[in-house]
Design a protein around this nucleic acid. Structure first.
Lengths: 352, 352
DNA sequence: CCTAGACATGTGAGCGCTCACAGGGGTGCG
DNA sequence: CGCACCCCTGTGAGCGCTCACATGTCTAGG
C-alpha cells in the first residue's frame, strides 16, 4: 500500500514536511500572515484567511510545536503528578483533567508515583519543569506529598488536588468534600434509626481518611450520639475483612451499623461479617465510599458515596488555567459528593 | 517565605533563567562543550566535565526542551492513546508504559477516549502528531479502534497494544495472551473434574472477549469436552448478574462450572447464583479474569487470571523505542498471564 | 484636501539549542 | 624530524516559529 509514486511532492525537493514559509509562499502572503490565521488573530481579511487555510490544507501543513514553544515560551503542556495511581480516586481525577485539558487545546504529561516520598515527588516535579510545562497539577493524598510537591513546584504555576485547605500552602486547591460525603453516609444511617455507628478508618496519614473520619465524628456529635468504635485499617480489601472480624470479636455493646472508609475495604468487611454470621443489613448496616465498579452487585449491593471525579478533574484544570493566566487566588474549592443508597444499609434492628 | 532579597542573582541582570551560553561562560568553555557534557558525549576531558557540571549546578541551569526539540527534531515525548480508560486493563497498561518511559527519560502524553469511533481516534492521534511526539502507543481493544488508529498513525512510529496479531497491520504489537489465560482457567476447572463448563462472554467486538472465548473453546476441545452453554454479556457487573440468572433459569443439563470473561461480571454472577440458591463452589465453580482489587475478598474469594500489566506497559514501550530507533519488526509479542486459585472453584460435584 | 485613525500585511530579529565542521595540541611511528 | 592519528575543543549556521515593529491601504472627519 505504498503511495510513493502517487502523491509524492515535487520530486526535485526533498520530502521534508512543509513549514510556515512554504504555506506563505503557496498562499502568496507572508509567514506572519499565516501565523495570524493559524492563531485565530483578528484583522486578517477573509479572502486572505481562506487562501491561507486552503494552502495549509493542500500542503498538509502542521505547526511545529517545538518552534512554537521556543519562540513563545509556552508549551501548552500541563503536567499531572498522580500518587497512588492504582486507586480509584486519583486515576479518575487524572482522566477528568486529561479530558478537560485536551478540550482546551492543552497536552497532558503524566508522572505517576507508586510510593510517595520527598525524593520521588521532587524528581517527578523536576521532570516536568525540565519539560517546560506551563503548569502542574499535583494529586496529593497526604501531607508528605503536599509538602514535598509544594517545595518542588516553587513559584511555578500549580494547583493542588488535595483535601487540605490552602492556608497550609500558597496554591489554589480543589477536592471532593469527603467530610460532607461521610456526613451524608452517617446521616443516612442515623436516619434509619442507628444509634451506635462504628467506623472502619483508612490510613491515618491520608487526607481522605482523615476527612471521612471527621465527617463521621461530626455527624454523630451533631445528633448527640456517642461515636461507635473506631477501627483503623487501610484502603485494602483485606483490611476491611480483618476489621470486621475484630469488630465481631470485640466485647461490649455491639454497633448496628458501620461506615467503612472505602468500598474496597467494605467488600472485605461484608465477607468478614458474613463469616461471623452477621447478616447485612439485618444485623449490621454497612456503608462504603467511592462507588467503585462492581459494588452494586455485591451481596448485598453496597450503599456508598459517589464522587464526580470527572468534574473534579475539570475543576482542577480550570483552576490551573487561571493560575497560568495570572489570576491566582489561593483558595480551596470543595465539590459535593452524592449518596448512593443500596441494600447494605437498612433500618436499625429493634433495641434488644 | 519570600526569598527575593536573599538569593537573588546579580541584580543588574534581569532574572531570566540561565541558558547554555551562561553556563559556558561560567565554566570557561564553549557552549558546545556544555552540550557535550550534558548529553553524556564521550571525549570530554574529566576536569572540563567537572567544571561544566559545577557551573550547571551553581547556576541552576536547566536545558530548554523546546530548543532541544527544535534543533534535534526529537521531542522525547511519546503519546499514548487509551480507549476505555476506566477499565482495569487499559489503565494498568498505561501506568506501566508511563513508568518505563519515564525511567528512559521520555515524557508521556496521554489521550483517553471514552467512546471509540474513527473520528475520535483520528483526532487523538492527530493531537499527538501536532505535538510532535516521537512515537505513539495505541491501546486498541477492538477492530474499529485498531483500524482507525492504524490509518491515523500512518507511517509514524507506533506500536499497538492489542491482542490482534500484526498480520492485519504493519505495526509491532504486544498484549497479554488472553487466550492462554482462558485456557489456564478452563484447564484448572477441567483438572477439578468439571465436564460441563459454561462461559459468560464479553462484548463480541472486543478482542479480549474473543480471545477468552476462544481459549475456553480450545481447551474444552482439547479435552474432548462439549462446550457448555455460552452466554454473551458485557464487561459490566450487571451483565454477570443477568447471565447467572439466565443460566439458572435455563432448561436442560446444568453446568458445574462457569468461566466468566472478567472479574466485574463475575461479581455479578456470584450474586446471581447466590440469589438462586446455587452455592459456589459446591454447586457451581466460578473463575473470573483480571484479578481486580477486591475479588480476593468476595464470598467466596474469586479464582481468576492475573495479568502483569506493568510488564505489558514496559514491553510496549520497549517495542516503541525499537521502532523509533529504526529497528521495526512488525510481530506480535504475547505475555503469559497467571492463574490465581482461590475458593470460588472447587471439585466438580459427584455426577448426579 | 489633508490627516487621523481604523484596518491589513510585511520585515527582521531572535528564542536556546544541536549539528557539521574546523581546528589545535599531544602521542606514536617511520 | 615529519606526518599521521588520536583526543579534545571551538565556531557558525540553522531548526521553525512568534514577537515587536514598520509599512501600507482605505475610510471618515475637520
Amino acid at each position: 500500500m505504498t503511495n510513493q509514486d502517487v502523491v509524492s511532492p515535487a520530486p526535485s525537493a526533498p520530502a521534508r514536511p512543509p513549514v510556515m514559509a512554504d504555506v506563505a509562499r503557496a498562499a502568496g502572503v507572508s509567514h506572519q500572515t499565516v501565523s495570524r490565521v493559524l492563531n485565530g488573530f483578528q484583522w486578517v481579511a477573509e479572502p486572505t484567511r481562506l487562501r491561507v487555510m486552503e494552502a495549509v490544507e493542500r500542503l498538509g501543513y502542521r505547526r511545529n510545536m517545538a518552534a512554537r514553544a521556543l519562540a513563545s515560551n509556552r508549551t501548552n503542556v500541563i503536567g499531572v503528578v498522580v500518587v497512588n495511581p492504582n486507586l480509584f480516586g486519583p486515576s479518575g481525577a487524572l482522566l477528568g483533567i486529561e479530558q478537560a485539558a485536551r478540550e482546551a487545546g492543552y497536552w497532558v504529561s503524566v508522572a505517576s508515583l507508586a510510593r510517595v516520598d520527598a525524593a520521588h515527588m521532587t524528581a517527578a516535579v523536576d521532570h516536568f519543569r525540565d519539560q517546560g510545562v506551563d503548569g502542574t497539577v499535583v494529586i496529593a493524598p497526604n501531607q508528605l506529598a503536599l509538602d514535598a510537591s509544594a517545595a518542588a513546584v516553587g513559584s511555578s504555576p500549580a494547583v493542588m488536588l488535595t483535601a487540605s485547605a490552602s492556608d497550609a500552602h500558597p496554591f489554589p486547591s480543589v477536592d471532593i468534600d469527603h467530610e460532607a460525603g461521610a456526613r451524608l453516609a452517617v446521616g443516612h444511617l442515623i436516619g434509619l434509626g442507628h444509634q451506635r455507628i462504628a467506623h472502619f478508618a483508612g490510613p491515618r496519614v491520608e487526607f481522605h481518611a482523615q476527612c471521612r473520619e471527621q465527617g463521621w465524628r461530626v455527624m454523630l456529635k451533631r445528633h448527640g450520639l456517642k461515636p461507635g468504635p473506631l477501627l483503623r485499617g487501610s484502603w485494602e480489601p483485606d483490611a476491611g475483612y480483618q476489621l470486621a472480624r475484630a469488630l465481631v470479636d470485640r466485647p461490649g455493646e455491639r454497633p448496628t451499623a458501620v461506615f467503612v472508609a472505602n468500598d474496597l475495604a467494605a467488600i472485605g468487611a461484608l465477607r468478614g461479617f458474613a463469616e461471623a454470621g452477621w447478616r447485612v443489613p439485618e444485623d449490621i448496616s454497612v456503608v462504603g465510599f467511592d462507588d467503585v465498579p462492581g459494588v452494586g452487585q455485591l451481596r448485598p449491593p453496597l450503599s456508598t458515596v459517589r464522587q464526580d471525579l470527572s468534574e473534579l478533574g475539570r475543576q482542577a484544570f480550570g483552576l490551573l488555567l487561571g493560575v497560568i493566566g495570572g489570576q491566582a487566588e489561593p483558595g480551596h474549592l470543595a465539590l459535593p459528593p452524592q449518596l448512593v443508597v443500596r441494600d447494605s444499609s437498612g433500618p436499625a434492628p429493634a433495641a434488644s
